[in-house]
Amino acid sequence: MKVFVGADYRGLKLKDSLAKFLVEQGCEVVDKGAYEYVEGDDFNDAAIAVAKEVRENPNTLGVLVCDSAHGVTIQANRFKGVRAAHCENTESARLAREHDDANVLCLSAHFVDDEKANKIASTFIETGFENLERRVRRINRLDERGDYD
């Protein structure tokens, strides 16, 4: 499995640890930054880079890390075809993949340690999409454009 990883300065340490773990698990990992600790850098940069790669490379996954995971999740979900899910446990990771065909896992460096991140990422990568008609229909609607009030 090819996995694109990215983080801001607050998620850098967890991202690097997780990337190493994923390589040990047999994944091909492509690091999209941050590459060094630069306090105050923007989470947007890594989220955009990973989202673009996942969108342009079918059958790949992404992992993003920032302090809360909210920023990277919101940014990544701005891209058509990207379904980013903020997961803080293995059950939410399983459901994100199984029910929603999530293709980007977002983790909080503030709330998730290395060991927990490894378990969540393993579950995310190993779980397949439950290809039921209702799930496909719902996922297809995610990319609809409209003016929502």
Rank of each mutant, 00 (worst) to 15 (best):
140 N>T: 11
77 N>C: 08
146 G>I: 08
115 E>M: 09
56 E>L: 10
140 N>W: 02
47 A>D: 02
121 A>H: 01
67 D>C: 07
18 L>I: 14
142 L>I: 13
90 T>W: 06
76 A>R: 09
39 E>S: 12
95 L>F: 10
101 D>L: 07
118 N>S: 12
19 A>D: 02
44 N>S: 14
51 A>H: 07
87 C>D: 01
18 L>H: 10
60 T>W: 05
6 G>M: 03
7 A>M: 07
109 A>G: 04
133 E>M: 09
70 H>N: 12
16 D>T: 11
95 L>K: 01
116 K>E: 02
41 D>Q: 09
98 E>P: 00
48 I>A: 02
136 V>R: 15
9 Y>E: 11
91 E>T: 12
12 L>M: 12
82 V>F: 02
24 E>T: 12
148 Y>Q: 08
105 L>K: 04
43 F>V: 08
34 A>P: 01
132 L>Q: 14
107 L>V: 06
3 V>Q: 05
142 L>S: 14
97 R>A: 06
25 Q>A: 13
136 V>W: 00
12 L>D: 01
140 N>V: 07
137 R>Q: 12
58 P>Y: 13
27 C>M: 03
120 I>K: 07
147 D>E: 11
124 F>T: 03
141 R>N: 15
74 I>T: 12
75 Q>P: 00
147 D>S: 15
56 E>M: 11
45 D>E: 13
82 V>Y: 03
92 S>T: 10
89 N>V: 07
91 E>Q: 13
79 F>R: 10
18 L>N: 08
138 R>F: 03
64 L>Y: 00
10 R>W: 06
12 L>F: 09
23 V>F: 00
96 A>K: 01
142 L>C: 10
116 K>N: 03
40 G>C: 04
38 V>Y: 02
48 I>E: 06
96 A>V: 04
89 N>S: 06
100 D>P: 10
38 V>K: 03
25 Q>E: 15
124 F>Q: 05
148 Y>G: 07
64 L>W: 00
34 A>Y: 01
39 E>K: 11
97 R>L: 12
79 F>P: 07
105 L>Y: 03
73 T>W: 00
130 E>C: 10
122 S>Q: 12
131 N>D: 13
79 F>Q: 11
126 E>P: 04
79 F>I: 11
21 F>E: 05
29 V>G: 08
148 Y>R: 10
12 L>V: 04
21 F>V: 00
98 E>I: 00
70 H>V: 14
18 L>G: 09
28 E>C: 09
96 A>R: 01
